[in-house]
Design a protein around this nucleic acid. Structure first.
Lengths: 215, 215, 215, 215
DNA sequence: AATGAATGAGAGTTCATTCAT
DNA sequence: AATGAATGAACTCTCATTCAT
């Protein structure tokens, strides 16, 4: 899955990034010090600054990485399905799986699918991140267009608003399911997966072609 | 809308809280120091600690306040409407209005609608926050039950899962609309409000009674 | 035991002092804040400064009080005995009792039996403290002189050096017994009281008249 | 006398410790801030925390160092003497010399000859301190046993109680001599050394074999 | 006489970052 | 390329003390 273009110190950079990712995941970005990253990765604190200009750049690198991984996940999901609903479910499942495997990346990816347009001073890494976000959007667009063509989805849904609103609603659902897992399981009395399935299905029903979908 | 019980005449506590809220909004909680709050509010650092035991309590106070304000907003929205869809739209609008007026509070309120059940050492403020969250949930439940009774909503929707999934999806939608306002307006070419309306309407369609709602 | 000369606010001053004494005893002087004293005594923080110019003066007042109480204890001890050894034992016992009842006062009293002579700017309270220390020394001197006269103590012991060296050695013994109570009881295997008795007896043997004392 | 094992070349740790020792001596531990130590030692405050984890560890280091130096002093004293009384006097002199050279260390060492047994969470430095204290006790025991064997000391004195009570009494004497130097010299009219000699000799008489010692 | 309110000064500690080697 | 050493700046929080009322 080689997508690392420039390979400056490569191995070390990846080691550091991997350690940082793990720690960020456990304790948050602000809760993780460069010192801890240095000790956990086995490098000296100063060496971190050889491979990343500062903490911000290290975070930016991780964001990019997370976006790319998410893109892979989604692409895989789209490939494997046949019917629209099946492919939709695959995407949902892959999002959930991704959030469960990389909770920290998930949050990062969500917040960074696209970028503040008013800025002009983008780091190369940020531009790359932006482009990956676009690729994900393209994949989603393809799914919807195919769905409409196949008569599985309502013909009159506007594609771009649907992509973006779904993106927001699905991530909101997933994060709710995660943050309030205990509350949901105790109050509603259903497991997290069932809660998510219900949410995704509800959402699908809103765009499904009512003639075909006999729900 | 005052429900602050105690607080003899202490306008200072409110001054400090208001300043903190503004700074937290601009720079995040962790990014705002007590020193900054002191300077911006015109009090000495030590005075902050006269009115709030520590930073955590200051944040907790803000969270509670945000929950209570949100609750008022939602109650007002539920009262004014007549049909289910109208009342639903009022809630959506009040959520959006609330998020636009108090963006930071909105984020706080979302994250705190309910509480980690594994803990037992709750501060009084946290318990109050929790109870307010429950009241909001009750209001939502009432809306759905009334809607089903009136034949406006599908009879077979499970109430609690719907409340919680809607809560997650609506907040996800609102935050997407806010965070990516510029991107949405430039890429999709529709104003933020329209994007939100479309999203809320999509969501409503998923639970509307298909017999009645002629969408 | 009225020895308070001037009675400014009397009751309140005593209340505050008593509370401070209790807290100092529990947590040390530096470990006790004026705030804590205020809350524990039921006065406002500002009121403390009505009755004591500052924390230092409050401590000074307590020192004087401790000296006076110690003096009373020692005087009582000297009165009740008959033979020299009996009176010596009474003093030892009263010292131990005093240290056990007022551990904090004991330490203060020890450190302040007399005062830095190079200073000239004594507070009235410090002078009083000094005078009480002198009275204690006089009582000790009387004991030794009586003992020599009675043939119970060696005739050739120099009185003043004996008083002061005994004062140091006895207090050192008592404090050791207190600070290392657990260690002594576990390592030596004898209770604290026995350890103290042994120490005092050893010390007495050093000045006892060897002709009379058949140890 | 170097027994500092580790410490590659770090003269800085010693610089800081030495500065701290001086300041602690002048103003007490609680009265000395890390800031002051930093300024007085010529390092930045942050650098202090490179060499010592926190203030407690810095104090702990000083305590251990003081114990080890005291141990060296005492060992030297025991080696050089011949008769029991001579060796006893050497110990006394070395204690006095030590207290005069390192008054703050002396106080620390006294308070730490042994440790609260109820605790189990000892720092490595505390354990080492404890062990050094035990070594000092062993040296004292040897002196007494030798003295009894040689017939210089009473045969029936219990060894452990004697060690601990002497330890307390000697340190009490030394501290009295130091704290009240001016008072003693002016009131008694003898120099500090003579006062101490008298005290030590008094103490020795209490355990000396009366048959041999013709006092 | 008593205090609510306020604060300057400073405590110990941590952090991201730099730089000579 | 890699790092040991060092630090300025900032952090949260506490304290003894003052003063208008």
């Amino acid at each position: 899955m080689g997508r690392r273009k420039k390979e400056p110190g490569s191995v070390h950079r990846q080691n550091i990034a991997a350690t940082a990712q793990r720690l960020f995941m456990q304790k948050g970005i602000e809760g993780t010090s460069m010192n801890e990253i240095a000790q956990a990765s086995g490098y000296s604190k100063a060496t971190l600054y050889v491979y990343f200009k500062n903490k911000k750049e290290l975070v930016g690198f991780l964001v990019l990485e997370s976006m790319e991984m998410l893109y892979e996940h989604i692409l895989d999901a789209l490939k494997t399905g046949t019917s629209t609903k099946e492919r939709y479910n695959h995407i949902c499942q892959s999002l959930v799986a991704y959030q469960q495997e990389y909770p920290f990346y998930f949050q990062l990816a969500l917040g960074e699918i696209n970028i503040d347009f008013t800025r002009t001073d983008f780091l190369p890494e940020e531009l790359e991140t932006f482009r990956t976000g676009e690729k994900i959007n393209d994949a989603m667009r393809q799914l919807i267009q195919d769905g409409i063509a196949a008569g599985d989805l309502r013909a009159n849904i506007p594609i771009l608003p649907t992509i973006f609103s779904f993106w927001g609603m699905m991530s909101g659902l997933i994060m709710t399911a995660e943050h309030k897992k205990a509350y949901i399981e105790q109050t509603i009395g259903i497991p997290q997966e069932e809660f998510l399935s219900y949410g995704f299905w509800t959402l699908y029903r809103a765009i499904a072609n009512p003639d075909k979908e006999g729900v």
